[in-house]
Simulated assay, not measured.
Amino acid sequence: MRNTFTVNGQTRNRLRPLAVGDTRPAKEQIAERLREAIAEGRYQQGERLPGTNALARYYKVGAHISYEALLLLQREGLVRVVRRHGTFVRGGGGEARRG
């Protein structure tokens, strides 16, 4: 499994893997990992998150699952999705809301 992402030319490993035995849908688990990364400051305000394909490869899920995870964060107001440009963090650090 690839443990890093390249975002804005920088290689990073900022997301925890999915928990073994967690029965929640994968989209909810992925959204939680992204929420945690934002809340802990691993992704800053205005920074682009990994894309749907990169998330799908990392978590070994279909791209539609990672897309749905990003949509959950968008509905919560944590990220802004810009078509053909990516998903960007709206609030950084401790500003992340828990769902």
Score class of each variant (00 low, 15 high):
68 E>L: 09
18 L>V: 08
24 R>G: 01
14 R>I: 07
81 V>W: 09
88 F>M: 04
68 E>V: 06
67 Y>N: 12
27 K>M: 05
14 R>F: 10
33 R>E: 09
56 A>M: 03
57 R>L: 10
36 E>F: 09
69 A>L: 07
24 R>V: 01
93 G>C: 07
90 R>Q: 13
43 Y>C: 09
91 G>E: 15
26 A>G: 00
19 A>N: 06
50 P>Y: 06
63 A>M: 03
99 G>H: 10
4 T>I: 05
82 V>M: 11
65 I>C: 08
95 E>Y: 11
80 R>E: 15
23 T>M: 05
1 M>H: 10
69 A>Q: 04
99 G>F: 13
83 R>G: 03
54 A>W: 04
37 A>I: 09
53 N>I: 12
62 G>K: 12
26 A>W: 01
76 E>N: 10
85 H>D: 14
56 A>T: 02
73 L>P: 10
64 H>I: 11
65 I>E: 05
24 R>A: 07
2 R>T: 13
8 N>H: 09
13 N>A: 14
50 P>I: 04
78 L>H: 08
69 A>D: 07
31 A>F: 02
53 N>Y: 11
11 T>R: 15
2 R>C: 01
19 A>P: 01
28 E>Q: 09
52 T>Y: 02
83 R>T: 11
22 D>H: 02
75 R>K: 15
34 L>S: 00
25 P>H: 02
32 E>Q: 08
4 T>H: 12
75 R>Y: 10
29 Q>C: 05
63 A>E: 13
22 D>P: 00
56 A>V: 05
94 G>Q: 12
58 Y>V: 03
8 N>A: 15
68 E>W: 05
12 R>Q: 15
77 G>T: 05
70 L>V: 10
72 L>K: 08
60 K>S: 14
47 E>F: 08
25 P>T: 03
9 G>H: 06
77 G>W: 11
88 F>I: 09
73 L>I: 05
33 R>G: 01
21 G>Y: 06
3 N>V: 10
21 G>H: 01
9 G>S: 08
28 E>M: 12
77 G>D: 02
37 A>M: 08
90 R>E: 15
79 V>Y: 06
45 Q>D: 13
4 T>M: 05
19 A>K: 08
56 A>K: 06
85 H>W: 12
63 A>D: 11
10 Q>I: 14
1 M>R: 11
53 N>W: 02
21 G>P: 03
40 E>G: 05
31 A>D: 00
38 I>N: 05
32 E>I: 00
16 R>Y: 11
84 R>Y: 15
56 A>I: 02
66 S>G: 09
62 G>F: 04
27 K>P: 00
53 N>P: 00
47 E>V: 06
91 G>D: 13
71 L>I: 12
98 R>I: 13
72 L>R: 11
93 G>W: 13
25 P>A: 04
87 T>D: 03
20 V>S: 12
92 G>F: 10
56 A>P: 03
17 P>S: 07
